[in-house]
Amino acid sequence: MMEYDNMMDSDFKEDFGPKIQVSAADRYHVDFELSNVDISLANSLRRVMHAEVPTIAIDLVEIEVNTSVLADEFISHRLGLIPLNSSEIDNLSYSRDCDCEQNCERCSVTLTLHAKCTGDEVMKVYARDLVVGFNRPNSEIGNPVITDPDGLGSLICKLRKGQELKLSCIAKKGIAKEHAKWSPTSAIGFEYDPHNKLHHLDLWYEQDAEAEWPKSKYADVEEPPAEGQPFDYDAVPSRFYFEVEGIGNIQSDAIILEGVKELQRKLAGLIHGLGESEGMNGEYDGPRSPDGMDTGAGYLEQGYSTPYGNPGAASAWGGGATAYGTTPYGNSGSNGWS
């Protein structure tokens, strides 16, 4: 409990509380070590950066002319995957939360594309050919991310002589949990315990795992286990090595800060919700002994497990006789608490 008391102190002592050490950083990458935190928090940060940091991406495409060899849907999909600059995304609202009917300048950015091949050479249409509409929260948001030295951006399609592509796109704010095109990252490296002291990994080997497996780049940062050192059952991971790799729609450090912010937004929403509905319409149906929890079946009868976890019922899916009864869900002994 020491750690708890200290952690909750408003001013953090040197040795307590989360620590971060940045080992490499540029526009697209941040490598850092997060230490003195529990794995649950580190993993939540990883998850939230991966799936819930909002960005902007093309979501609706209206095709006026498409005489290219690619189908409309195919091109629409490619357009969706083009990373768009998402700076100051907070100033853009989600379309679903907006007051407008369909979409407006407060919740979307319009991009148009018109290309026609007139020469004999095959024409390549690139992301830079997208024309971004004027009405937007700032002059950067919605711009296609262009990183190549020639300033072309992603290739959208190729046109032969006489072929034409004319379309308009509506880019909206979203998160990668809904569609990966909204992801701010291409990958997040997440590593801990480079010497596998905790045995969270079971390494496959022919003769000797130590000799056959390559060492992690973080292996020399942590002390290797001493010869014949007994397994420590109380050990928990506390140093986490992150390698955040952005794709340019959000600055790499902003991914981390926005990730934390998103986590806090979740919490703030729940705190607000709890405060609003004092009591949470829960009917306390009398005091109940915590021991009542031990009988898994009784707990399930309360009706708040999965539909499969119905040990006694004679329904078509219930009982142990059917194939369903043997699934991990239908096991009345395990109730899935972790």
Binding site: G273, S277, M280, N281, G282, E283, G286, R288, G292, G303
Partner: peptide
């Protein structure tokens, strides 16, 4: 409602 108490709960 985002959060609710499930039936069979007591104060603690």
């Amino acid at each position: 409602q985002r959060v609710r108490i499930l039936p069979g709960s007591s104060e603690t």
